[in-house]
């Protein structure tokens, strides 16, 4: 009797298991197909243009073969400035929250604020950036205004991933270092950060992919004017100097948005070409994140 019950039970569990596995496989399959469809569609639509002569090397103002050279440069430069600002701040905030913050209402208020920041719509962050950085501080439509808007958008994600990475390091490592007379700071810098580094780097690169494709936060802050850059310029204050952070800049994502808004013949092709380039860049960020993370993890454990 008991045996038959057990058999039935085992059978039922087996069936449940099969159904669950089946459903999960379907969901994963659906997501994969969706991703593949988007990627393939955009690449097919845009590859021709993206690989056409001059597309990656001409400015968008070129009469014969308009390209996206400056947008490409501006996208990377904007990303660089954003990371230079947001990584140290996020690292500091995450270390403070994990290692130092007392367990009180101020800390939990700070955590909540950071979480809320991450759910603000990026267009609203852009609006704020335009009011504060562009108008109030008088910086004008500029790379720095755009980068700061992106920073606000990036910090919550980075703080979370770095916090998680630090929390994932076994607590025993931390205690062992303290028990050897190291200060909290020495412990953080010499034990916790190195151990968390693979996850931190992966998190930074993945966030870079998100920042790279962001458009809404930039429209009002760094603008959509086609830049005119002079790579030979040595005057950092010149509006054509590529590295001047107070000049306007148009990134790839904003470029797509702008061209879509002003339908002129031939624009569609450029839009698809740009989209393909943007997509490839973002995919590369993701691949890079994985490769770097694995590489660092291996170096750390088999030194």
């Amino acid at each position: 009797m008991a045996n038959r019950n057990l058999d039935a039970h085992v059978k039922r569990i087996g069936l449940q298991n099969k159904i669950a596995t089946g459903i999960l496989t379907c969901i994963v399959g659906f997501v994969l197909v969706l991703l593949a469809a988007i990627v393939v569609y955009i690449l097919v639509q845009g590859a021709g243009k993206a690989l056409s002569p001059g597309f990656l090397t001409n400015p968008s103002t070129d009469d014969v073969a308009p390209g996206i050279l400056y947008q490409l440069f501006d996208s990377f430069y904007m990303l660089l400035i954003t990371l230079v600002i947001s990584v140290p701040i996020s690292l500091g905030a995450a270390i403070f929250l994990v290692e130092y913050a007392p367990d009180n209402w101020i800390t939990s208020a700070a955590s909540t604020a950071i979480e809320t920041l991450s759910s603000l719509p990026s267009i609203v962050v852009g609006m704020f950036g335009s009011l504060f950085f562009v108008v109030t501080l008088g910086w004008g439509i500029s790379i720095i205004a755009g980068a700061l808007a992106l920073t606000m958008f990036n910090i919550p994600i980075l703080v979370r991933t770095i916090q998680q990475a630090l929390e994932d390091v076994p607590r025993s490592q931390h205690d062992a270092a303290l028990a050897m007379g190291l200060t909290r700071w020495e412990t953080t810098v010499n034990v916790m950060l190195p151990a968390a580094m693979p996850a931190i780097v992966t998190g930074i690169v993945i966030s870079a992919g998100r920042v790279f494709g962001e458009a809404a936060a930039l429209i009002f802050t760094s603008g959509s004017a086609a830049a005119r850059l002079n790579f030979a310029s040595t005057n950092l204050a010149s509006p054509t100097n590529p590295f001047n952070i107070f000049r306007p800049a148009e990134t790839l994502a904003v470029h797509i948005w702008k061209l879509k808004m002003e339908p002129t013949p031939g624009n569609d092709e450029i839009v698809w070409g740009t989209a393909a380039v943007l997509l490839v860049c973002v995919l590369l960020f993701n691949v890079l994140a994985r490769v770097l993370g694995k590489f660092l993890a291996r170096r750390l454990t088999a030194e």
Binding site: P170, S172, Q173, D175, A176, A177, L178, A179, M180, G181, L182, T183, V191, P194, A195, L300, T301, E303
Partner: peptide, 22 residues
């Protein structure tokens, strides 16, 4: 001074805790 003190009172834990170093 905790940090000075712990230099002369060592501790070994339940789980081995080698650092990720050589």
């Amino acid at each position: 001074n905790l940090f000075e003190l712990r230099k002369s009172i060592g501790m070994v834990f339940q789980q081995p805790t080698p650092f990720r170093k050589s």
